[in-house]
């Protein structure tokens, strides 16, 4: 008996070389994820819409004449994407036919409640803005373009608030979310406009000659936006990594865990660092290179939306 006690007393976790005591789950209940792929796609589409709207206002709102060729296609895409985006919200919702509840039962502290109005006003403004643009009414186009900018920022910025107000998940509860979402929206929007310009000029114009001034101009914009995006995304991650336990684990998941191939590989290296190199090297000032950079940037931002939504929910809470 005495020897058993002695033996037991000796076998402390410290002696066995285990840093912490071994924990094994016998039973636990885990409920399904709250958000999912549909929400990631929704965030991606609103981001593209906000980004392309802002590019379209460069010429018609702020007078950067060289971007006039992308103005019209920008507003058409912004409108179409923002009409498509809420369909993913309806598909995600358990009771899509109750969507009208959003307009009569309001909750001021819920970003989704704000969003239901932004998502209705913004496409209407896009249509009016586009209407005057196609009619050639410069003054009205400018007015509605300038009204549209805060709307575009809000319609995408609020999606960041959706995540940062869902305080359960460490990766989301960060004031960086809205600003990070806005910058990545601009990144993906500019990339899409580069791609659209190339496709439009190559296949749908009489000469078949790509407007290089627009492509390289947007490429320069992409360069700076990618630098800001990388800075924000990495500083957010660094603070998470050295933060409290749940924050640390969420950052670890992205850097070294199950999401590392997606986050480090596709989102950061392929989707941000590599295109940054492509658009910064003067020797590679070719339309094809910029087109390729645009494609991988768009892929990278889609992966970013996926990583944020699915990665944020990946670690169970209890």
């Amino acid at each position: 008996m005495a020897s058993t006690t002695k033996r037991r007393a000796r076998l402390t976790p410290a002696d066995t070389g285990v840093r912490t005591m071994e924990l094994t789950t016998i039973t636990n209940a885990v409920h399904g994820e709250a958000f999912g792929l549909a929400i990631a796609i929704y965030f991606y589409l609103t981001g593209l819409s906000a980004g392309s709207f802002i590019i379209s206002t460069l010429a018609y709102g702020f007078g950067f004449e060289k971007y006039k060729p992308v103005g019209k296609v920008g507003v058409v895409l912004a409108t179409l994407l923002l009409i498509a985006a809420p369909m993913f919200l309806l598909a995600h919702s358990g009771r899509p036919l109750r969507a009208w509840h959003l307009f009569i039962y309001l909750n001021a502290t819920s970003p989704i409640s704000w969003g239901s109005f932004l998502l209705s006003i913004y496409p209407v403004n896009c249509i009016i803005y586009g209407f005057f643009m196609f009619k050639g009414n410069a003054k009205m186009t400018k007015t509605f373009g300038l009204i549209g900018i805060p709307l575009a920022l809000m319609v995408h910025g609020y999606t960041g608030f959706i995540l940062s107000f869902a305080k359960a998940h460490a990766l989301w509860r960060s004031s960086m979310m809205p600003i990070l979402f806005l910058v990545s929206a601009l990144v993906s929007g500019v990339a899409m406009m580069i791609l659209v310009t190339i496709i439009k000029d190559k296949f749908f114009s009489k000469e078949g000659k790509v407007n290089e001034e627009v492509v390289f101009g947007l490429g320069k914009m992409l360069f700076w936006l990618l630098i800001i995006d990388l800075f924000l995304s990495l500083s957010d991650l660094a603070v998470h990594y050295f933060g409290e336990l749940e924050s640390h684990e969420s950052a670890y998941l992205l850097l070294f865990g199950a999401f590392a191939p997606l986050f480090v590989g596709i989102e950061t290296l392929l989707g941000k660092v590599f295109p940054l190199v492509l658009v910064s090297a003067p020797s590679m000032r070719k339309v094809a290179v910029y087109g390729f950079a645009a494609i991988i940037v768009m892929l990278g931002i889609f992966t970013m939306r996926y990583n944020v939504v699915m990665g944020g929910e990946f670690i169970p809470l209890l």
Binding site: V30, A34, S93, G94, R95, F165, A166, W172, L317, L318
Partner: peptide
């Protein structure tokens, strides 16, 4: 409406 936002916010799942 089954949007799942409350599920995303509850720290106790």
């Amino acid at each position: 409406i089954g949007c799942g936002y409350c599920m995303a916010a509850c720290p106790y799942a």
